[in-house]
């Protein structure tokens, strides 16, 4: 193949991958490379963004009604559905590796005056506006990376008596981590510095309703009432 320099070569390979023309073995090689070469992964992402404009060509078609039931059976069959319409996520949370649960506890909130990460240079502030579909913003969380703290501004949401609101981060690895209880009248939530590193642009924040004092298990047990993504301020 004489397509010239290395960069156009990678550009073409990333494009071939997104088009889907490559044989299976080459697709797997490209995916493996994406996991260890972030520059290359960025080329793939930009092809995906550009070519997704062609998605309009796909006409909606209705699948058989039984498909959703089969999906639910695969994902949730072994879960006993909690009574009272509670959050049906036990399988998901149970599925987390024990290690990640331990990590959630270890990276948990510190109300003491821990310093944020030092020597990492100024990072941009990140802000998430958390809401529910069809309602206004319920809470604003702004991260100050130098302080290693979230400033929480509750707007229009308070839990029922005897309940607490717990804030969760869903970082890039997809494993939710508790950031602590939402202070009732706002204020600061200090984060452990390892946790600050997990907070990135585009990561998701969510608030669940928990028993007073927070989830007893280290994973969310109640319904998710608010969510939103962190974006650069």
């Amino acid at each position: 193949m004489s397509t010239g320099a290395q960069i156009p070569d990678d550009e073409a390979l990333a494009g071939e991958y997104v088009l889907g023309v490559l044989p299976l073995a080459e697709r797997r090689r490209v995916e493996e490379r994406m996991t260890r070469d972030s520059d290359f992964a960025a080329l793939v992402a930009s092809w995906q963004a550009d070519l997704s404009n062609l998605d309009e060509a796909y006409q909606p078609e209705t699948p058989h009604k039984g498909v959703k039931a089969r999906i639910d059976a695969r994902l949730f069959a072994e879960a006993a559905r909690p009574a009272g319409g509670l959050w049906g996520s036990l399988v998901f949370w149970r599925g987390l590796a024990l290690a990640s649960v331990a990590a959630a506890a270890a990276f948990g909130i510190y109300t003491s005056d821990l310093r944020g990460p030092s020597g990492t240079g100024p990072a941009p502030s990140l802000v998430a506006e958390l809401g529910a579909p069809g309602s206004s913003v319920g809470l604003i969380a702004a991260l100050n990376p130098e302080e290693g703290a979230f400033t929480i501004t509750p707007a229009a949401f308070s839990p029922d008596d005897g309940k607490s609101l717990e804030l969760w981060l869903v970082p890039g690895d997809g494993v939710p981590v508790s950031l602590g209880l939402v202070p009732g009248d706002g204020g600061q939530l200090k984060l452990d510095k390892d946790l600050v590193r997990k907070v990135s642009d585009g990561a998701l924040l969510a608030v669940s309703v928990e028993p007073l004092g927070g989830s007893p298990t280290g994973v969310a047990t109640g319904p998710v009432v608010l969510s939103g993504a962190l974006t650069k301020k």
């Binding site: 909606p60 209705t62 699948p63 498909v67 959703k68 969510a206 669940s208 969310a220 998710v224 993504a229």
Partner: peptide, 30 residues
């Protein structure tokens, strides 16, 4: 849709069902 995906990430099954309802025809079309 982003909100439904965010809730799905937290294991919210109702959000996942709503996401399915909103998107299954398009994805089946694909």
């Amino acid at each position: 849709l982003s909100g439904l995906i965010a809730r799905t990430a937290l294991g919210d099954r109702k959000a996942f069902s709503a996401l399915y309802d909103q998107t299954n025809a398009k994805l089946f079309g694909v």
